[in-house]
Structures are given as C-alpha cells and as structure tokens.
Design a binder for these strands. Structure first.
Length: 355
DNA sequence: AACATTTGACCGTG
DNA sequence: CACGGTCAAATGTT
C-alpha cells in the first residue's frame, strides 16, 4: 500500500514535470509563425493528459491517505476535495444521508457526489455538458442563503426502468458561471451501461418516452463549434473560494463544449438541460456515447471516494474557441484503482478525455 | 398527443 | 417551525 503510494507519487511528480516542460514548449510555439496549429494543439493535449493523470492519481492518493480505504459500499463524506463554492453543506449532509437507511421522501441512500461545473455564459442553456444521461427536471427550490434556486433532476428512465439517479444543480453565488451539480444514485437504466453504441438508435427496450428524450438531448445539444477546456482542480484542499473566483482556485478538466455563447437565462438558470448531464456518471459502465458527439465526455472520477462517491471539480471555459477536438471519448486509464471498492460497475471512463 | 418544465403544496427531518 | 426534497397539476413545447 505505502509502496504503491510512493510509486504513484513519483509518477505524479513525473507527470507534473512533464506538463511543465510541455507548457514551456507550448510557450515557444506561441509565435504563430513558428508553429502549426496542430503542433500547438498536440502540445496542449499532452499537457492536459499529463495533468489529468497526475490529478487522477493525486485524487485517489489523497483519499487513500486521508481516509480509510473505502471498502464498503457506502462511504461517507465525499469530502470536497476542493471545497467548492459557497456552501459546504453538501458534503456534510452526504454523510448522514448516505448512512441513512430510510428512504424517505427526501433522504436517499444512494451514493452521492458533487461536481463543480463552470459554464461559460451561454453554454449552459444548450445543455452541452451532457453526461450521456437523460434527465428530467422535477422541481426547483429557492435555497436559503443562496442567490440562485436549486434545480432537481431525476433520470428520465425513472419510471420506465426504475432508475433512481438524481441530481441537483445550483449556480454558485460567487461565480455565476459555476454550477454545483450534486449527483445522487447510480444509473440503473440502460444508459448506465450503454450499449456499445449510443447512437440514436437505442430504441430497444426504451420506452417511447425515453427514446424521445434521449434523442432530443443528444442530437440537439451538440454544436460542434466549440471547444472547452476543463481543468481538473488541483487545489483540492484549498480553502473554498473565500477569494471569490473559483476560476483561480479550481483545477479543471478539459472537454469539448458545444455551447455557442448564448446567454444564460438569468431568471431560470436551470432551464432545459443546461448543466445537465454532466459527467459524473456513476453509472456502472458508462461510456460516453461512442457517437463521436463532441459534447459527450466523462469526467474521470478523479476524486472518487468510494462506491461511486467522489468529488469533482469541473469547469468549462473558453467558449469560443473553435476546434475539432473530438478525441475519443473514452480513454483507458492506467491508474491503480485496486483499492477503491466502488460499485462493481463504477464507470471509470474518460479519464483522460483530452489526453 | 406525448413529453418536458414550472411552480405551489405537501411532507420529513433537524 | 424552518428548510429542503418531492409530488403533481398546470402549462409549454415538439
């Protein structure tokens, strides 16, 4: 175990060093006339890859060191690796809720984790941040102390397939472009372990309704004209945004975005599927739809805590760059996750989306 | 017509 | 009793 950590630490340092080196190289390529776009893009990809690996390791390692190995199905406290934005209630509550065996109207026993999603203006409404799942909004609530209401979403297949996955989306008080997406429960619907092809033709046993929805979401959102950079946060333990701008604090990840700079509806930040479907698919074997739709991506469960509970911080930015970053949505990751005892089917997808 | 979203009411928890 | 999560009728959208 310790040895494993040491090993990971070395790799971690190595990856970070590599990232630094690559960044330097990239700097040399800044002169437009001295390098091609491809070369620069390649460097960016490599850099991101390095950082992602490092981050993934760091995250796993952090948990390994701070907490007992999650060996049981239910783990508590998806401690925010990165204390997110304005509130920390989520993590605190999580413990209780997860431990609770009662499935009351508001308490769930499902695994739960949170993500920070930064959506550049406009990207939200388009619902580009699609995690491949179909969500249906079932409520919105004004939360005490929060400037913005919280939206409640459940899996569209709740009735047709009994999928109990839900998520809550709330815009950050400090940074309006940041959304906290709190996922609860793993998908047990077909999407959880999507058929190899997530093409529009998943008309199998889906109810007519689900089909409708999924297609709608998958086909409309993609707007292949953008690229977004997600940075996976490193500042895990950094105090929350007391400084305000999470942009400066949180790490990010990178993934293609499809939004096109529309404006976010201020009066209803949750309309449609704005932050919809963000990765975090705790679904078993979720893979981003192979359909090369650029807006599908999965965030690596970098901060996985256990049993599908992890904390993630994702940001999207750079809405405006055009690019054809449609890398394979799913990448293999070679970090050791042996000691993580998550659900048998926990998705470990797209760890290096942009690698 | 079918399905999604909105929104006020209801209910459980602390 | 206040707050947060869910329900369900009304309404909007495709």
């Amino acid at each position: 175990m310790e040895r494993s950590l040491e090993w990971e630490q070395k790799i971690l340092v190595s990856e970070l060093a590599q990232g630094k080196e690559l960044a330097k190289q990239l700097g040399n390529h800044l002169n437009p006339s001295s390098s091609s776009l491809e070369a620069r893009q390649s460097l960016v990809d490599k850099i991101l890859s390095s950082y992602e690996k490092a981050l993934s390791m760091l995250n796993c390692g952090a948990f390994a060191a701070d907490q007992p190995k999650p060996t049981t199905g239910i783990t508590k406290s998806p401690h925010s690796f990165i204390n997110s934005s304005s509130r920390s209630e989520v993590s605190d509550q999580d413990c209780k809720e997860e431990l609770s065996s009662d499935v009351s109207r508001k308490r769930k026993t499902q695994p739960r984790w949170t993500e920070q999603v930064k959506a550049c203006s406009g990207n939200g409404l388009e619902g580009p941040l699609d995690d491949g799942y179909c969500w249906r909004k079932y409520g919105q609530k004004v939360i005490l102390g929060a400037k913005f209401p919280r939206g409640y979403y459940r899996c569209t297949h709740r009735h047709s397939q009994g999928c109990l996955a839900t998520k809550q989306v709330q815009r950050s008080d400090e940074n309006h472009s940041v959304f906290e997406v709190n996922y609860q429960g793993r998908h047990t619907c077909s999407q959880a372990s999507p058929p190899p092809v997530a093409s529009p033709s998943l008309n199998n046993d889906f109810s007519k309704r689900s089909k409708y929805l999924c297609q709608q979401q998958r086909e409309e959102k993609p707007k292949p004209s953008k690229e977004i950079f997600l940075h996976v946060g490193l500042d895990c333990n950094r105090a929350r945004n007391d400084s305000g701008s999470m942009d400066d604090i949180f790490p990010s990840f990178s993934f293609p975005c499809t939004s096109s700079g529309n404006e976010i509806e201020e009066n209803n930040i949750f309309t449609g599927s704005m932050v919809e479907n963000f990765p975090g698919s705790c679904s078993p074997t979720f893979k981003s739809p192979a359909t090369s739709e650029s807006n599908y991506f999965s965030v690596s469960p970098s901060h996985m805590n256990s049993f599908g509970t992890f904390y993630q911080n994702v940001k999207t930015r750079g809405c405006g760059l055009t690019n054809s970053v449609t890398h394979s949505p799913t990448r293999d990751l070679d970090i050791s996750i042996d000691d993580v005892d998550f659900d048998t089917t926990f998705p470990f997808d797209n760890l290096e989306f942009l690698a």
